[in-house]
Computed example of a mutant assay.
Amino acid sequence: MSRTTPATLALDRAGVAYELATYDYDPKAERVGLQAADALGAPPGEVLKTLMVKVDGRPACVVLASDREVSMKKLAAALGGKSAEMMKPADAERLTGYRVGGVSPFGQKRAVPTIVDAPAAALPQAYVNGGQRGLQVRLAPADLVRLAGAQVAPVT
């Protein structure tokens, strides 16, 4: 497994402090974020998942704890839209340059509006996908918000 991805390169360029963690990714897991938390031995609320969505047909990214579900109504409202839906996996892969299960909010091929769920943003440290299945970066969510140019809003 490569430890250098567009995500880790973006973190390095920005001077963000982070630690790498790897785990055995299970493509058959019902909920990838919860499987990652279990494999890392971390609380699910501290392992953040990255979801690609469409708000009024426009792409966006949302980051939240792996044990939470996004409210599409709250997400749409936070981005000034009327409706939100999950992006099709093939579209998410094409837009981000990452494979589903390895989507990171950092180093995506195209910058899109990003929302970090308020409880996740308040954590002192959390795991976020490092741009590859089975690769996580542990960092301060405040750095995630800053580097991704994200908005913080309650979306769960």
Results as ranks from 00 to 15, higher is better:
29 A>T: 13
69 E>T: 15
68 R>P: 00
131 G>Q: 08
106 F>V: 02
52 M>Q: 03
129 N>C: 14
100 V>P: 00
119 P>N: 11
112 V>Q: 01
111 A>I: 00
97 G>C: 03
77 A>V: 12
102 G>Y: 10
22 T>I: 02
1 M>Y: 08
46 E>C: 05
67 D>W: 10
68 R>L: 07
6 P>V: 07
34 L>A: 03
44 P>M: 08
32 V>G: 02
109 K>I: 00
82 K>V: 09
94 R>A: 15
47 V>H: 13
74 K>F: 10
102 G>L: 01
16 V>N: 05
69 E>Y: 10
96 T>L: 06
116 V>A: 06
121 A>E: 08
155 V>Y: 11
52 M>L: 15
145 V>T: 11
90 A>H: 12
31 R>C: 05
105 P>W: 12
148 A>K: 02
125 Q>H: 13
51 L>M: 15
144 L>C: 05
38 D>V: 03
103 V>E: 03
138 R>H: 06
40 L>Q: 12
66 S>H: 08
31 R>D: 11
5 T>H: 03
96 T>E: 01
51 L>P: 01
107 G>Y: 03
66 S>P: 04
10 A>N: 04
128 V>W: 11
101 G>A: 10
51 L>G: 01
54 K>P: 00
32 V>S: 12
120 A>Y: 09
130 G>C: 08
20 L>H: 13
122 A>H: 12
95 L>F: 12
22 T>C: 06
10 A>L: 08
117 D>M: 07
64 L>M: 12
7 A>M: 11
79 L>S: 09
96 T>Q: 03
104 S>P: 09
148 A>I: 05
49 K>R: 10
26 D>W: 09
35 Q>E: 15
